[in-house]
Amino acid sequence: MARNPELGSLGESIQRGLVTPLRRGLGAFAERVSAQPIAEPTLAETIAARQRFFGADLVDAETGAVRSDRVVLSWFGCASFAVALGGSVFLLDAWVPRGATSGYVPTTPAEVAALRPAAIFIGHGHFDHAADAGPIAQASGAVIHGTVEHCATARKQVKSPGFSCVTLGSSTSLPGARYDFDLAPGISVTAVRHIHSARTERYAGADACAPVKPIPQIGDMRRYPTTLADTAHLVRRLTDPEGGVLLYQFHTEKFTLTWHDSSGPLLDKAPEVLETLRELPASDVHVGAVQGYNQFTNGLRDPRSYIEALRAKVFVPNHHDNWLPLITARGSAFRAPLETALATIPDGPKLRMLLDPDDYVTPGVLAFDA
């Protein structure tokens, strides 16, 4: 992770308190502790995983097929979700948080691979979003969707990669670039290039948001002590590059889902992206990142700009949990700021709050009629 003056307090905390010490003290160790490949899942493992993530009533007990009349999102940490939509299973990001803790998120990359997702959609390539993408795709046969750089990073995560990757531009594509394609019969996808969260100068206009500065909660490191293997995994993946940032919208005949794993300062640096988002169909459910580098200066102003443009019925926060306890806090710290921000939007969405760790891998929390 290169030194970047735009990262502000959060980036400096990562650099001084985590990245530099781990690089110096654990780099050689991480190389010695090799990552174990994930075995191809059996049908029994797929049925069990799908029933756990999506609910037994949604999954055929003999074939593992998922019903098409319900939409279920099952959260497994940071911005990662397993999704059952229109009879298809796919992942939004692919990382089970671990390294500073172990077991805080009650699943494993092997169990996620056992879902046998048809696709993995990468929002951006940092470790906390895509560190398990390659191994999961290799074991499950999932097709990765992301930029050229996302695909290259995922292939480096495994030996002799044999999975497919659909490239959607590159890190140099212009913000606002749009890519439309089909995932499966009856499911279309729109990907939009946007920008990563970044610190901007304090905004003092009428629609300013108060800074959000949750106190880091390191107690979870004691309650969920890490293992050597998980620490090595984190050290190996810490410097994975961003590789560009993508927002995805999924459409069926009667349902629209939008997801993004970072919320950039579009109002200040890429207003053309907001124009593109306003042209998209209104979302039934919008799952958007709320934790970011600008929260310390401008609170939730950046996430609010996405929410206003996407016009959803329901908003679900992501990237707001205690995925790295040295610098993060539990999602409960974001409830009040989110309620305040949404209250300023005329006819704004209802808030469907996610709280860690109770809402991890809990299919009933985000279940909707299709």
Rank of each mutant, 00 (worst) to 15 (best):
G364Y: 09
H129N: 13
L266R: 02
P281A: 14
H124S: 08
H129W: 12
L174N: 07
H233T: 13
H251Q: 13
A48D: 08
R193S: 12
A65L: 10
H129S: 14
R3H: 15
E40H: 10
P37A: 12
R223H: 11
L18M: 13
P303G: 07
G299W: 02
I144Y: 01
P225A: 06
T190K: 04
E12H: 09
M353D: 09
L324T: 03
G125V: 02
V212E: 00
R223V: 03
F163Q: 08
Q15E: 15
Y360T: 09
G86W: 00
D359F: 11
Q157I: 12
A329M: 09
P109V: 14
R98A: 11
S102A: 10
Q249L: 05
G146Y: 03
G77F: 05
A39Y: 02
G288S: 06
S173Q: 06
A82C: 09
P41Y: 05
A44M: 06
T63W: 13
V189W: 00
D358F: 12
I120C: 10
K269S: 10
L228D: 09
S74C: 08
L257M: 09
A282Y: 07
S160A: 15
R50C: 04
S68Q: 07
A137M: 10
G186Q: 01
G99E: 02
R236C: 07
H126M: 11
L26G: 05
V72Y: 00
K156E: 15
P325N: 06
L280G: 01
V66N: 03
A94V: 04
H286E: 14
T297W: 05
G205V: 04
A208S: 15
N318M: 13
G176Q: 04
L115D: 04
Y224H: 10
T297M: 13
R330E: 08
G141M: 04
Q157T: 05
R311G: 04
F296H: 13
N322A: 07
R178N: 04
F90V: 04
G55S: 10
F121N: 01
E6F: 15
A2F: 13
N4K: 08
G27M: 04
P175F: 14
L92Q: 02
G205R: 08
Y224V: 02
G243Y: 00
A113G: 08
L280T: 05
L85S: 00
G169S: 11
D128R: 03
D369I: 02
L73A: 07
R178Q: 14
S34Q: 09
I14W: 15
Q36F: 12
T297V: 14
P117I: 03
T20G: 10
S305F: 12
G103W: 02
H233V: 10
G103F: 03
R223A: 14
I14F: 15
F181D: 07
G186P: 02
E31F: 11
H129A: 14
N4D: 15
V212L: 08
G219H: 08
V83K: 02
V166N: 12
Q36A: 15
I215W: 13
Q15M: 11
D220K: 05
T101L: 13
G123P: 00
G64T: 00
H124G: 08
E62Y: 07
P41I: 06
D132W: 00
S262E: 06
E201N: 14
A39F: 00
L168Y: 03
F181Y: 15
R223K: 13
L247Q: 08
F315K: 02
A61G: 10
L228Y: 07
L10N: 02
